[in-house]
Amino acid sequence: MNGTNIDSLLRKIAQGDNKAFETLYIRTSRGVYAFLYGYFHSHADTEDAMQTVYLKVKTGIGSYRAGTNGRAWLLQIAKNHALNELAKRKNTVSIDETDIPVRESFDEGFTSELRKILTEEEYQIVTLHVLWRYKHREIAEMLSYPTGTVTSKYKRAIEKLKARFKEE
């Protein structure tokens, strides 16, 4: 999933191409799902959120500026939706994201296990790098960290995963 491909699909969607929208879903749904799961920790909530996020992509396509960063635009919609949903649960407006409660997860499966092993930041960095193919430098800009911090967090995450899943 590189930015150019997503930008090209979003431009087509903006011109009314519904097939491009379906292609966008096929290409990006895995990455969006993993991204949202980092916020919800629940497959049920993530599945619901997926439908809403892509509906917002379609209905809000007018706000996308062609030639800019399609990946970032899509992820911003997903992030905003996740934070709004979690804030509704708390029923207060919270600026600090770490205050927002997350439902305890009884989920099984690899994604859930991954999320439990890694910290929130590590999971987010691994998702952006592995699934969205962002470079460490780009992730650092997105998360307002130094590049070295992203690299070391990523390395620590990989070590944890290798140790847990006993890779050579």
């Binding site: 895995r30 497959h43 690899f110 699934l131 995963l161 890779e167």
Partner: peptide
């Protein structure tokens, strides 16, 4: 590709719902 990355992608492919 690492085994854990493959497992993760497989798990995600199973989880991702069809678009309504």
């Amino acid at each position: 590709m690492s085994a854990w990355k493959k497992r993760w992608k497989r798990d995600l492919d199973m989880r991702v719902p069809d678009l309504r």
